[in-house]
Design a protein around this nucleic acid. Sequence first.
DNA 1: CAGTGTTCAGGAT
DNA 2: ATCCTGAACACTG
Length: 154
Amino acid sequence: MAMREGSGRFGLWPVSVAWDGVCIHRVWFGRSGGRDPIPQEITEFLAGRRTDLSLFSSPAEEADGVSARIYRIVREIPYGETRTYGEIGASAGTHARVVGGALARNPTPIIIPCHRVVGKREIGGFTPDTAIKKELLDLEARTRRKGSLNSRKS
DNA sequence: CAGTGTTCAGGAT
DNA sequence: ATCCTGAACACTG
């Protein structure tokens, strides 16, 4: 199977994906991915019509080392929930700042939901724009509320 | 080795 | 609320 590249959109931001079958090599915010479409499941996710992207794999989480361990832990954060850098660090047996460093180099945002990792006091950062992080969290909050009419808490 | 990062807690103002 | 400090540490060049 050959590597393909395509572009889609998340609100105001162009999103590009480089992938090969279910293996997502890279996801970035920008339109250098060309004019071909991206995988339909990702398009649906970005539109709030899908909450699960676990069918895809990312090479980054299969490697050895602390960063890969962090990526695997981050992928287990349920849709619509968040964890702090400190919590992820404790789970991975390392320090919060290392989590920040690993997520800053995350080659596949969205697939590895680094936007669900926030600071204890601040929302934390996001490349290229924290507004995207806020928007993603907002999308997940809205989508989850819409989809679970029986789990409202007063 | 030096520099860099999406942190955290504590203290001063 | 904002600013500064020191600690902790994987990864890159």
